[in-house]
Design a protein around this nucleic acid. Structure first.
Lengths: 160, 160
DNA sequence: CTTGAAATTGAAATTCAGTTTCATCTGAGG
DNA sequence: CCTCAGATGAAACTGAATTTCAATTTCAAG
């Protein structure tokens, strides 16, 4: 049993919340799955193990996991909300608009420059979002081509 | 009559679309309003001039204006979609989480570093989103306090 | 002008992600 | 093994955005 799992149980107990079959299953499944997962994906995985679990419970459990600091919600443009492990070092994302692959990066120089920008305009930064959208190595025209992600027909293309 | 307005009419004609009272009014109102406007705000402004215009038409016209490159859609975290003038120089945003004020910035060094990051991971960047969330001068604890924005009770707080 | 086909409009219905409601069920402390 | 606050899940609801469709308008050809 992972330490995150224990942490979650402790969190629940502390707040007078209950440890239930559903919460256990949802948390376990989430911790076992890859970096960035959507509610729907998580729901399907959970459902395979127990078809009686409702989508509402997945939403509710994710909220608790966020309160516990174990999970973070990320909005990758319109309607692409994913969840990833929390409590980790800060990082930003590179997102392939073709296959949906997500790579994390961090760059201290950029972070420093952000502070300079904020200072210039008199802002105090509380958080930030820095996402680079493009094509990963596999999906670039010259190479053998990765296959397109099902749900990524229209991935965010914000600031040009 | 502004050049953007003419551009829009030309765009419509080229594609066999029609110039209508509603499209004229919506486009004119949008071009006259400030930098970042929401659909609802635009709808209200338009409605003052012609109460019969439907919200659907505003959505449809915004889509056309985007196709024409005259407008850009920006998603500032969950449910805060704003529209701003297109065809301008690239820039990113500083957003005050207290009063909703939005300031634009650009930083070539950051843009350059982004390319380096992308290169490191074999990505080709097509677009990016860089948003700094925090408190503007007016809303910082020490100063006289700006008043909170109505619709900004829960502004995006993504990556810490 | 007049006409009519094609495009546009707006009200209402629909979608989609996410939340709320509520009757029923269940975990865990006594 | 009791009890009851907390949890569950089905169904209803929300809010933003899109689709449908009958009625209306544009505009180019007569």
């Amino acid at each position: 049993m992972s330490e995150k799992f224990i942490h979650f149980r402790k969190f629940l107990a502390e707040r007078g919340y209950k440890t239930t079959r559903q919460r256990d299953l949802i948390a376990r499944t989430l911790f076992q799955s890859g970096r960035h997962i959507s509610v729907e994906e998580l729901y399907q995985h959970v459902r395979k193990q127990d078809p009686r679990i409702g989508l509402v419970t997945v939403y509710r459990t994710l909220k608790l996991l966020m309160e516990a600091g174990l999970v973070e919600e990320r909005h990758f443009g319109e309607g692409h909300t994913l969840y990833e492990e929390g409590l980790r070092e800060h990082h930003d994302h590179l997102i392939c608009t073709h296959c949906g692959k997500i790579v994390e990066f961090e760059n201290h120089i950029i972070e420093g420059l952000q502070e300079e920008v904020a200072k210039k305009y008199g802002f105090i930064i509380l958080s930030h979002k820095h996402e680079l959208y493009g094509l990963c190595e596999t999906c670039q025209p010259s190479t053998p081509q990765g296959r397109p992600h099902e749900n990524l027909t229209t991935l965010p293309v914000s600031s040009a």
